[in-house]
Structure formats: structure tokens, C-alpha cells
Simulated scan of single mutants.
Amino acid sequence: MNKQKTWSGRFNEPVTELVKKYTGSIDFDKRLAEWDIQGSLAHAQMLCEAGVLSAGDLAAIRQGMAEIIAEINSGTITWSLDLEDVHMNIERRLTDKIGDAGKRLHTGRSRNDQVATDIRLWLRDQISIIQALIRDFQTALIDLAEQNAETVMPGFTHLQVAQPVSFGHHMLAYVEMLGRDWERMADCRKRVNRMPLGAAALAGTTYPIQRETTAKLLDFEDICRNSLDAVSDRDFAIEFTAAASLIMVHLSRLSEELILWMSPRFGFIDIADRFCTGSSIMPQKKNPDVPELVRGKSGRVIGHLTGLIMLMK
């Protein structure tokens, strides 16, 4: 393989292996491959409609990308650290398959606006998955609440017995929290669903691209208006992580209650054995590991929020 970097024209010596490992992102951004290809196919179609790419080039790109998708799905594709990231790996694989038409795909864009587009496409789909999971969880809680509408339990303030409530009523409190979580995700999605493609490195391109066409092909609701902001904006990622942090706070609250209620000092519930673990030296113990891990994982999500804010400051 020719290991010459696409950006290495002014350099007199190759990058060291240590720098490759330190700066390469392929180990984690290869998960964006599907969305990178989606963006590339839309970009290619737009370039063809704008008269920048020929119909023959577009057909070759579509065929080559179909073969690459098949390789990714079958696990036969080889990801190269020498090519740094998922974008260059896919572009090189495409060029190996179809020749110079693969290189012309990059006309009118940069990896800067390309990665920004990929992340938004990926996050948009993840938000939809999370929203569906929230609705499933709400449905399960509502079913549980209906079954226990008259199951009386103590309500607590300051962890002291306060007033009687029904277990169903208690579960419906979390349905309300999750409803707000769903709404926050929906609101966040509006700002995620804006297309930065066309900003190129930071100042746009002189090619006669048609950003609205690409946005429509990719089902974006709008385009990013300013090229500098388009490639640098990660507010949407911070906003998503903030909404995700609130979801985890709510799940952590519920998990803490499950842990307390399962304790012999409360004895309100018994979590099924298949969702618990035991102790190697205390056989009488039945540990609610799943809710305990939910509480622990909430710290990781909240930590990522703080890290993103500090990264962008």
C-alpha cells in the first residue's frame, strides 16, 4: 500500500509510528462508517446534479460504496492506522476499487465538514433509538403502575416515613421524568439535524455545490449558515450529553430506591435471581448488581458532559 499521506506534500520525512498511534482515530471512529458512506453518497449525487461529477463517476462511486458496505457488514474490511481515520480509510478503499473517480468524490468538501456531518447523522439516529427505548420503559412502568394502583406503601421524606402512597403512584413519578427526558431529546434533535457539509475546511468552496440538495438527500431540516461555526460547533454534542445525563440521574434515582427497597431493612421488593449476583464468602447475600451498575454508569455520562464542556471552552 502507498502510505503517503494526502496532506504530506510539504513534508520531508514520514510520520513516526508513535505519532501515528497517538493521532490516529480509526480504532473508535470506524463506528461512523455507515454514516460516512451515507454522507458521501449524497455528496456525490449533489456533485453530479451540479455538473461537477459525471454520471459515470457517480455510478462507479455507488457501486464501490455498495461493495465497501458489504465488506464492513461481513467484517472483512481492513482498517489501516496509516490512513488515520474512517474517512480516509473508506476513500482509499473506494479509490482502490474504482480508480480516480474515488478521489473526485472529495471535491468541494474537507474532512472538517465531513466529520461534523458524520457525527450529526450518527447522533440523530442514536437519539431516535434512545427515544424509542424511553417510550418502551414508560410503557413498562405504566403497566406496573396499573397492576399496583392499590398497593399501599409508605412515602418518604428525609428517608423517614411520611405519608402513604400507592406503589403505582410512585412508579408514575418516573413516567413523568422520562417524559421530560423524551422531550429534551426531541428538542436536542432539532439542533443536531442541521447540515455542516459544504463548509469545507472552514471557508466554503469555490465549486458550485448545492447544499440544500445534499441536506434534502440526507433528511436534514436545515443547513448550518456560517462556515466557521459549521465546522467548529459541537454545542449539539454537549446538549445531547446534558440531556443524557439527566436521563441517567433519573435512572440512578430509581436504581437507588430499588436497592433500598430490596434491603431486608425495607423488604418491599424482591428482584428476580436472574438479575442479581451473589457473594463468594457470604452465601446468604443477593446483590442487586444491575441497579448498582446503573448508578455507577451515571457518573461516567455526567463526567463526559463535564469533559466536553471543558474541551470546548
Rank of each mutant, 00 (worst) to 15 (best):
M1K: 15
N2W: 11
S8W: 06
N12P: 14
E13H: 15
L18N: 06
Y22R: 06
A33Q: 00
A33L: 12
I37L: 04
S40G: 03
L41T: 10
H43E: 10
A44W: 00
Q45K: 07
C48F: 07
E49I: 02
A50V: 09
S54D: 13
A55T: 14
A55I: 10
G56R: 10
A59K: 02
A60V: 01
Q63C: 08
A66R: 11
A66G: 09
E67V: 01
I69N: 15
A70S: 08
E71L: 10
E71Y: 12
I72T: 03
T78D: 15
T78F: 14
L83R: 03
D85R: 04
N89K: 00
N89S: 02
I90A: 11
I90D: 09
I90R: 03
D100C: 12
T107I: 04
T107D: 14
G108C: 02
R109C: 02
N112E: 03
V115T: 10
D118C: 04
L121K: 00
L123W: 08
Q126L: 02
I127N: 00
S128Q: 15
Q131Y: 12
R135F: 03
R135S: 10
F137L: 14
Q138C: 10
I142S: 14
L144W: 03
L144Y: 11
L144G: 09
N148Y: 04
A149K: 12
F156W: 10
T157R: 14
Q160K: 15
G168L: 04
H169E: 15
H170S: 06
H170G: 12
M171S: 10
L172A: 10
A173R: 11
E176F: 14
M177Y: 10
L178G: 00
D181C: 12
D181R: 11
E183H: 15
R184G: 04
M185Q: 05
K190A: 15
K190H: 12
V192K: 01
P196E: 11
G198R: 09
A201E: 06
Q210E: 12
T214Q: 09
K216G: 09
K216A: 05
L217M: 13
L218E: 10
E221D: 14
R225V: 14
S227K: 03
S227A: 08
S227N: 07
S227I: 13
D233H: 06
R234W: 05
E239C: 09
T241S: 05
A243R: 01
L246A: 05
L246W: 08
M248N: 02
S252V: 05
E256T: 11
E257L: 07
S263C: 06
F268C: 09
F268L: 08
R274I: 15
M282E: 02
M282I: 00
M282Y: 03
Q284L: 05
K286I: 01
K286S: 04
V290A: 10
V290N: 09
E292I: 10
S298F: 02
I302T: 05
H304Q: 03
L308R: 05
K313I: 07
